[in-house]
Design a protein around this nucleic acid. Sequence first.
RNA 1: GCGCGGGUGGCGGAAUUGGCAGACGCGCUAGCUUGAGGGGCUAGUGGUAGAGAUGCUGUGCGGGUUCAAAUCCCGCCCCGCGCACCA
Length: 815
Amino acid sequence: MQYTKDIDVKWQKYWQENRLFNVGIKQRSKPKYYCLVMFPYPSSELHVGHARNYIIGDAVARYKKMCGFYVLNPMGWDAFGLPAENQAIKHKIHPRDWTLKNIKRITQQLKSWGIGYDWDREVTTCLPDYYKWTQWLFLKLYEKGLAYRKEAPVNWCDSCKTVLANEQVIEGRCERCNFEVIQKNLRQWFFKITDYASKLLDDLDLLEDWPQRVKTMQDNWIGRSYGVNIHFPLEGLDFGLDCFTTRVDTIFGATFIALNWAHPKIPALISDSPDKDKIHGFVKELESQPLSTRSVDNFEKKGIFSGRYAINPMNGKKIPVWIANYILTGYGTGAIMCVPAHDSRDYEFAKKYDLEIIEVIKKPKNSPDSEGAWEGDGFLVNSSDFDNLPCEDAKEEIASYMEANDIGKREVNFKLRDWLVSRQRYWGAPIPIIYCPDCGEVPVPWQDLPVLLPEVQEFLPTGQSPLTYIKDFIRVKCPKCSSEAKRETDTMDTFVDSSWYFLRYISPKSQDLAFLQEDVDYWLPVDQYIGGVEHAILHLMYSRFINKFLHHEKLISFSEPFKRLFTQGMIVKDGAKMSKSKGNVVAPDYILDKYGADTMRLYILFMGPPQKDAEWQDEGLQGCWRFLHRALRLVDMLKSYEPPKGSGEMSKPERELLNKIHSTIHSVTKDLEGNFQFNTAISRIMELVNQTHKTVNEDTIAKDILHQAVETVFLLLAPFTPHVSEEVNQILGGTSSVLQRPWPKAIGKYLVSEEVEIAVLINGKVRDKLMIKTDWSQKEVEEKALSQEKIKQAVSSSQPKKIIYIDKKIVNIVL
RNA sequence: GCGCGGGUGGCGGAAUUGGCAGACGCGCUAGCUUGAGGGGCUAGUGGUAGAGAUGCUGUGCGGGUUCAAAUCCCGCCCCGCGCACCA
């Protein structure tokens, strides 16, 4: 039997007509299983590098279905975003047309690979019936004070002409276009994700089935640290400076204070300084520095003395206040107490500008001699009443002393910043806010949603949203007082769209609500989420935040959206990620025509552990093609197999084949239940096929055992090669879809074989092999081993000192 | 610098409660088969010495524990990813 494209087409049609993958609202008789793959950004047609994600998801969904779960496997489109707009500018085509065209093409591709989605639940984020609810979400957050507008230094990409979230800045460069990001003071919309910082961090512990790597990345990104906010009075001024530190134990070693260029107190500090202009110049210089210059190793620390002194509240010591380029904006207070003896950055700065260095932590005697700051633990010195305390104790005691004396307060700080969600671009969901000269900021009333994205002719980014030029869009009556008002013209970050799409799949057609709570509570949380690790922070953290917000608002009953997360590796070609610009993409259409969808699916699952990157090799594809045909030849063989009647007693080859059948079921199931070890699962099925061929070639076996072997092969293959499995299932007499058949179960009595080969070792080296009956005692095995010709020779004169027997594996004779 | 992965044949990769290293696939070699355009079958395939039986050697490097180490311990090297002045 030959595997041809006709088989693909035939069964894809069958699945669609029989609605095999469409699920209703609930089914109480079966446990539910929500399998979700990260939905694509429809920017071009898919190549095999993209395919892995969907094929893994489909294999999981089909496997779970056969295991008796009621499986939901939906698909949709993350359809707003910059690339569509850039294409629009380049090719003078509307972003919507371009996007919808791609969606059509990708849908057809996914279907041609036999991916089984419930297409009735398709969601598209750029369509009004979806973004209406994205706007609803915005207003919900607004209502609770979690969406707000403020002026702050923000990341600005001058190539994309828009602001960016912190998460979208990679090494000081724009995630999209790699252009250097600069900081600008702008008034922008934020989501107050920082309110959830602690929860987002603590709840990572609940996510037992998430890759540790992803959890660590989020942990680092949220970056919680415990410390003290210390108030330093300023000499001759009626205000002071607040500094956050995690090393309050080093307070007696603070010899200067450093401020960030944007620190709000700078003008007041320098207002009557003779060097005012010089300092201003310095601040200006720092202001215009691109972020990327900081992230290089040789970033040179620079600073200028402000002319002012602060007072160390613990000992009254006068310390100079500097303005320095290495102090971060937006973290802590923007002012740092500097302890050069115990902080390498302060040390470097102090050396350069010849500032005082006072040791207050004695480093342990056995620690290595080294230049520079000692940042480790030790006992306090030069610290007045706190001398001789170990660091950890000193932290507590000094913090308590400060709180008692109103010098400072314990504080928790986070690296996580609020999520900047406004964008000065066209292709996104409009922010549903109206500005009224009298009432100020007014949310668009619920019943007026969606705020439709108007048609525009010109998408060229100018630094202002293209919506700014649409008079009819901007002009609006204030919902409160009906006077002439203006609409917000910025659109939302596309990560807002994707932060809740997994909820919309549950009630995709709902007109009155974003999602129906009862149904969402049935299907969610997602049992298995599958996607690329590149979303470890952005999408996965935003989704968790939105989910937690909705949970807090009692709109859903679960606090984490994704129970299990699987991050698949990339498929690379010639050592590089597949991309059009590199010219190394492998187009799937050619493969489908020549080898069929199942060959491609099988190879992608077989090429290596799915969580690791893998190199695409055409030869590997051929190997899978050969294997499928080797397996299909078994079917032909079975059809015409007419062995002479046996004795009724089971022969040895028959028992061995049965044994192989059941041990294969056992290990394939184990591989799938674990961490989706498709590659090893498939290799075991290959072994079964090989052994079946061998057995039939060399021996005569009962037809029903051969039948069992063939049937098992294609049942186990069904999640990976569904088309071929359906076809074989039909040939073998199946009347329904192979998906509706139960996953095979290994029968215990066939898992134990009666004979097994063990190794005989002398002093830990293999000297011989030995067949033993599995019911032999240790003594019997040892005697048999010692009686082997080779072993007798090797042992010869000497007497065995010790014999170690590992059950059914090894006999080790120690001389 | 810190954190997380990882290093096994010509290649992708198996094997970790310590128990026969190299499963499975690719590639390669030889033979068979009129299959004649990426087909099938058989045998072989870590290195090395040998005609051969077989010996020695072998999982990044160096030590150690053990009857037994890819797997455990100590000290290094290299590669990938993430974070990167978070005070």
